[in-house]
Simulated scan of single mutants.
Amino acid sequence: MYEETPSAGIPGAVLWRTAGGGGVVLPDGCMDLLWADGRLLVAGPDTGPHPAGEVQAGAVAGIRLAPGTAPALLGVPAHALRDLRVGLADLWPAREVRRLTGLVAGYADPRAGLEALARTRAADAGPPDPLAAEVVAGLRAGRAVAAIAATAGLGERQLHRRSLDAFGYGPRTLGRILRLRRALALADRGLPYADVAYAAGYADQAHLAREVRALAGTTLTAYAGGAAGAKRETPQPSGSRTTA
């Protein structure tokens, strides 16, 4: 069982929980704070499919933070956590993590505790790099990386470095991931694959198929047919984060 709801206190964030039990996490440009087996963990940005069972032995709750917003909150550049799941105690002082663990444990719904933790931390840390939102918006609109860099008054190398800190990878990789999320969301609606490819901005259906294999580790037929499991829907334009 999986359920989620938009966060009322953290812009762009999603609160979720699951009964656990395996599955695969697909890349989406996001990072998560997790509550699993009484521990606080961080899920870094993924570049490919990641086994969810690594932290989902039992019930798990999380807050999924919008692309580019987690580094300011965590005080760690996103690329340092790329493709990783780590304990929060590996990033913050142990005494503070013990206090926060007690805070989250005191909530009947740990998602509310994670939201309170994130809200307090965000207030202390200050706003994320505004460039991150500009990059995400530009990529979702189909703009070229060079055009996004020029609008921001940066060279492409500077934009790449800033993107590594904000997202964990460069803007071209982020663009591929965001486009894939849009394609999978369209496929979930039952659109023909050729129409999905066109609407999501791929050269053709073969291009879409290669990207699904490269980033999601599956095929469109397997994904749409349920071989990869039930898809998690999310209100974010980037689409679902996992298959179960």
Rank of each mutant, 00 (worst) to 15 (best):
E3N: 06
P6A: 14
G9E: 15
I10Q: 01
G12E: 08
G12D: 08
G12Q: 08
A13N: 02
V14R: 03
V14M: 08
R17L: 07
T18A: 04
T18M: 00
A19K: 03
V25G: 02
V25M: 06
L26M: 13
L26Q: 05
P27D: 07
P27T: 12
G29A: 06
D32F: 06
R39D: 15
L40V: 11
L41I: 11
L41Y: 01
V42I: 15
A43S: 15
D46W: 07
T47L: 15
T47P: 02
G48Q: 13
G48L: 14
P51T: 12
P51D: 11
A52S: 13
E54Q: 12
E54M: 10
A57S: 12
V60T: 08
A61C: 14
L65C: 06
A66S: 14
A70W: 09
L73Y: 04
L73S: 03
L74P: 04
V76A: 09
P77E: 07
A78P: 02
H79M: 05
A80T: 06
A80K: 00
L84I: 02
R85E: 10
R85F: 10
R85M: 12
A89E: 15
D90M: 12
D90L: 12
D90V: 05
P93Q: 14
E96N: 12
L100R: 02
T101A: 11
G102I: 10
G102F: 10
L103G: 09
V104I: 11
A105D: 11
A105T: 06
Y107Q: 05
D109F: 07
D109A: 11
D109W: 06
R111T: 08
R111H: 05
A112I: 01
A112K: 05
L117N: 00
R119L: 15
R119C: 13
T120K: 01
A123P: 04
P128R: 11
P130A: 08
P130S: 06
A132D: 05
E134C: 10
V136T: 14
A137P: 02
L139C: 12
R143K: 14
A144N: 10
A149R: 07
T151I: 04
A152F: 12
G153E: 11
E156W: 01
Q158G: 13
H160P: 01
R161D: 08
R162T: 00
L164T: 00
L164A: 00
D165K: 04
F167Y: 01
G170M: 01
T173R: 07
G175P: 00
R179Q: 07
A183W: 01
A183D: 00
A183Y: 03
A187I: 02
R189S: 08
G190I: 05
P192W: 06
Y198I: 04
Y198K: 10
A200V: 12
A200L: 13
Y202A: 03
A203T: 13
Q205G: 09
A206Y: 14
E211Y: 12
E211A: 15
R213T: 14
T221R: 14
T221F: 05
A222D: 15
A222S: 13
A222R: 13
G225I: 09
G225K: 10
G225F: 11
G226I: 09
A227D: 14
A228P: 00
A228T: 13
A230Q: 12
T234W: 04
Q236T: 03
Q236N: 03
S238H: 11
S240I: 00
A244I: 09
